[in-house]
Write a protein that binds this DNA or RNA. Structure first.
Lengths: 328, 328
DNA sequence: ATGATCTATGAAAACGATTTCATAATGGCC
DNA sequence: GGCCATTATGAAATCGTTTTCATAGATCAT
């Protein structure tokens, strides 16, 4: 069937060991090296990765488990991770959990069976607490969502700071009844909620917030009910772009004009946020940098396992657009 | 280090062969089966996939190479493929080429080294013609972009029909100077261009079209120059959502109001297309069905290699929104 | 009761690479 | 020229499974 290293060896008139050395690194004379190269070309040899991994006890693979592959934030991070990995001669296994703890457990098990070298992971709140209990034989770097302090390396956005910026901006524009809508499955949603509450209190304002499942439908339903109330907020900050879509739809369904009747601000500078009318005021996350940093943390830990646990906090950038126009 | 099947065998007081049979399928008494299960739990055994793959000569892995992971069309297809695969007990390796033929070649080689069971692939035009030349030892199913007839199974949209629908709709709304903007790297762009030309001629109209690199920036630049001309089109059909963003930006930068000054219609029903003002008239692709069908074709070919080559053509659904409002 | 057919189990081979170990050849140094 | 260090090469062991192959009991029909 498939051509093996023995076939190449025979074709080149050398031993399999020499072929292995010629292809990898090892002392081989130029003459034999060329013979081997010719034999590889002639036979169309492709090394069997399973055999290589088994013998060398090194999968050369890093795992990437994300919560929602449809979320452009995660696809952007994935691309950055993939780039870094392939540049370092490693492969990537990408899995998508849809925020489902059961699938997270399933994929974690799969990663163990693959004997991956390291893992980059955006876990749900449910899993992140159980993670230290599982004895994993590879280092883990959390992205987007941090876990209990000092357990795993992590790279996250400065959520408190981002929320402070958004609230500060809205207050400056004259809003006082500012609501908050957050996803209920991720620690990021929780962190942004904390940041929201702190920022509101710093301004002497009363927080009013709601938490929903991470889907635009859930957000639309909840927001529509909320906005129908007499004491509805005049502005809403939203913890991610999926929920933001729901908020916009809810406002429109009630005939509320943004920002005249309701100001809106959210997270993630997706291309559509500047295309809608009015454009959305958002915190832009440094997605490539997050992916690159996660890979750096992982590589450094692989190289120096004794390193202290590090948490890299990156700052977002506030992009002001029409959705947070001055209050009437 | 890691616990192997021998350790489990020792703990259960049986031979490694029995452990293997108890975990997979094979005749094992209930008593021993339970002992093995207990030993697995006690030792925390995770089978080494590299060893299993090597011995059983079956990677249990299907490859998925897409052109652009940021394109929601491909992420949606990916999810469907992933679901089908894991349901069948297979794993997925996902790679992203960014429409770069060099990376396509790189990843194809990687897939061979992984000894994947089958491949689902959305190739660029450059690669799709070379594909038959490469002797791959696994079946390939093309998605989104078909190759030369009769070589590989494929599942694609009915692009000619979709274009006929869009042009028919615009003509009905009173437009006659209808331009076309297409991506230049995929066969899909080319096919939609053919469909556009055919549909225009059927209506006795003169086609005027342009092809650009698959990025919103390129589309914006090209469209802005186009719309500045005296004989500019009064409507534009656009072959994908990335380009559509560029067209909208170009129109706005010139102060053209959609649809009053320029009607627009495109492909892919992304969530933002109903959020912008006016909403975008688009052809919606049955993304989940595309992914599921690709997996079905692949599985059936694996089961019955002699099957004739099949090309499944799925129909899109036209969603009419404000962007194609009646001509003045 | 006896041979024939199953069934559950273990011993050992096999998958295809890398790596250790041994060895022949080379070169340098006195 | 002889000895030691160095180098290039091959033989063989090894990684952790699955899968033959052999075998000892058990079951069955006669």
């Amino acid at each position: 069937m498939s051509v093996s290293i023995k076939d190449v060896a025979r074709a080149a008139g050398v031993s399999p060991a020499t072929v292995s050395r010629a292809l990898g690194r090892g002392p081989v004379s130029d003459e034999l090296r060329q013979q081997v190269a010719a034999a590889v070309r002639a036979t169309g040899y492709k090394p069997n990765l399973a055999a290589r991994r088994l013998r060398s006890q090194d999968s050369g693979t890093i795992g990437l488990i994300v919560a929602d592959i449809r979320n452009p934030f995660f696809t952007a991070v994935s691309r950055a991770v993939e780039d870094s990995a392939y540049r370092a001669g490693m492969r990537v296994i990408l899995c998508n959990t849809d925020e489902d703890p059961e699938r997270e457990a399933l994929y974690l098990g799969l990663m163990q069976e693959e004997r991956i070298t390291g893992l980059i992971f955006a876990p749900t709140r449910a899993t992140v607490d159980l993670l230290p209990k599982r004895s994993l034989d590879f280092p883990v770097v959390l992205i987007d969502r941090a876990g209990p302090a000092g357990v795993h390396d992590a790279v996250v956005l400065d959520n408190r700071d981002a929320m402070a910026t958004l609230i500060g901006h809205l207050v400056e524009r004259g809003y006082r009844e500012i609501g908050g809508l957050f996803g209920n499955s991720s620690s990021t949603g929780a962190e942004r909620r904390e940041g929201y509450i702190a920022a509101m209190q710093r301004h002497g304002l009363t927080p009013q917030f709601r938490a929903v499942a991470p889907s635009s439908e859930a957000a639309q339903k909840e927001t529509a009910a909320w906005l129908a109330q007499a004491d509805r907020p005049r502005a809403i900050v939203v913890s991610n772009s999926l929920l933001l879509i729901g908020v916009i739809k809810a406002a429109r369904s009630l005939g509320l004009i943004i920002p005249r009747d309701l100001a809106v601000a959210g997270f993630d500078n997706e291309s559509w946020t500047e295309l809608v009318e009015p454009g959305m005021t958002v915190i832009e996350q440094p997605v490539e940098e997050i992916g690159r940093t996660a890979m750096s943390l992982l590589f450094e830990r692989l190289q120096t396992p004794g390193l202290p646990v590090r948490k890299v906090v990156l700052s977002g950038r506030c992009i002001v657009r029409g959705s947070s126009g001055a209050a009437q």
